[in-house]
Nucleic acid binder design. Structure first.
Lengths: 257, 257
DNA sequence: TCGAATTTGTGCGTATGTATC
DNA sequence: GGATACATACGCACAAATTCG
């Protein structure tokens, strides 16, 4: 004997499939709780629970006093993070956006600070001295005037202090990306490393990104190396609804490595 | 007047903070619904809703007849997807797991099928003939005996039919990864491409991965190319709680590209 | 501008089924 | 078998937000 699927699940299954096939297109209102009660012949609690499942799956959003609406999914944009034989890592966001015909812009705030422990470790900084050792820059990137990506970057001041690139977004080389900027002071970045994760966004992140509470975000921890030394760390957060990340490369020949 | 936080939310807030500070360590049982009723002086419905919030956040899991238990968070594992100057792409899962001292295993099921539209496009297949054109293989990978990753791969039969690698996990080259297997029939894979996204897992995915409903998953769409032709497509799903993905490479010299 | 109707959010009480211990 | 605990389900009530005449 197969166990019967719960009543609320059968209702939510029906709603879900109707959304998928387009019977309830994006932006339209789902049946209200009383309507579901009548249409399916179920109790108010079951109607509520069924809608709750749909909302939890991110297929719809409730607007108190108005109704529950099928979400309008903005088209996903591909953010190319790495590809072979081509120079683009210096500012992937700006390059990718421009390539896809979107207006990319950003706001920033730079500050000299002491490095938090995880940054200290990655940048291989010596024991804390009480003095600021890194320049932290917080970015909010926008695409077509909507916030799309957060980034916090750290650069060691012993490399950049006193040069005209110490503040990434000021001076003659503003907006050119880490790789190009560092090159102007003789620091040749030759390796990159990105660690990609995903989780539910924090309240603060969802607010800054202007996405619903609990939305899924992707996180990227990026480091740049020059001659074996890590010269930049960045913590990047972006909405998983708006972006996918692209990585590509060559498969090494058999003997290599 | 600030609006009062809902009753159930105050209860779930309290439970959450107690979990975070270690008052309820991983593996311990949370108070039962009747206990919550008494301790907080709320109704059964509120107790149930509060626990539901905690479960939905993935902090606890319910075991009917026994109780609701704080989840034991396994440490996050890094899945290295690409790194420079080293051969590892053939079977990233198996290589990564072995390197970190975990037991990796997998179950599979292969079937000759007609290609779905998105696969047809990526593999550049001609118009459908009604005959099976691709071999689909569904994998469930396990790490230390727990399911950790799902993968569905498609390989065009016109390349592999009649060879001893037509079924990836059978024959003399079983378990050796796409790159190595294809090499034995003269197909030299020279490029890879991965598109990474994230979202809430579907009910089916969460069931197969044995993670709470609504857990965040990462998705990877991977393609392998040999001499300009895409010879494999794989759709990979893994729990974002269990894994991060690692990509690394060289920054091209200035003139390149 | 106001108020009535609608809709979601929250909350209470109760009952039955089923899994665990 | 009995006690406990969660899952499902019904019915009801009121508050808050929205909509619309």
């Amino acid at each position: 004997m197969e166990s019967e699927r719960p009543l609320y699940a059968r209702v939510s299954d029906d709603l879900r499939s109707k959304i998928r096939v387009g019977a309830y297109p994006p932006g339209t209102r789902l049946p209200s709780r009383p309507e579901i009660r009548d249409e399916y012949g179920v109790s108010d609690a079951v109607a509520k629970q069924a809608i709750g499942v749909i909302i939890a799956e991110g297929l719809a959003q409730a607007r108190p006093g108005s109704g529950t609406y099928v979400v309008e999914r903005p088209p996903v944009r591909k953010l190319v993070r790495a590809w072979y034989g081509r120079r683009g890592l210096g500012s992937p966001f700006r390059a990718s956006m421009a390539e896809q015909g979107h207006r990319g812009a950003w706001a920033y705030e730079s500050e000299r600070v002491q490095a938090p422990p995880d940054v200290r470790e990655r940048l291989a900084l010596p024991e804390p001295t009480g003095q600021p050792e890194v320049l932290r820059t917080d970015y909010v990137f926008t695409t077509d005037d909507r916030p799309s990506m957060l980034s916090t970057s750290y650069e060691p001041l012993d490399l950049t202090e006193g040069t005209d690139i110490v503040i990434p977004e000021e001076g003659p080389h503003a907006g050119r990306g880490v790789v190009d900027r560092m090159a102007t002071i003789g620091v040749v970045i030759d390796r990159w490393d990105e660690t990609v994760g995903a989780r539910a966004g924090s309240a603060e992140e969802c607010r800054l990104l202007d996405i619903p509470l609990g939305s899924v975000v992707m996180t990227i921890t990026r480091t740049y190396e020059a001659a074996g030394r890590t010269v930049e760390v960045a913590f990047i957060v972006l909405s998983a609804d708006l972006f996918v990340l692209g990585y590509a490369g060559e498969v090494p020949r058999d003997g290599a490595g």
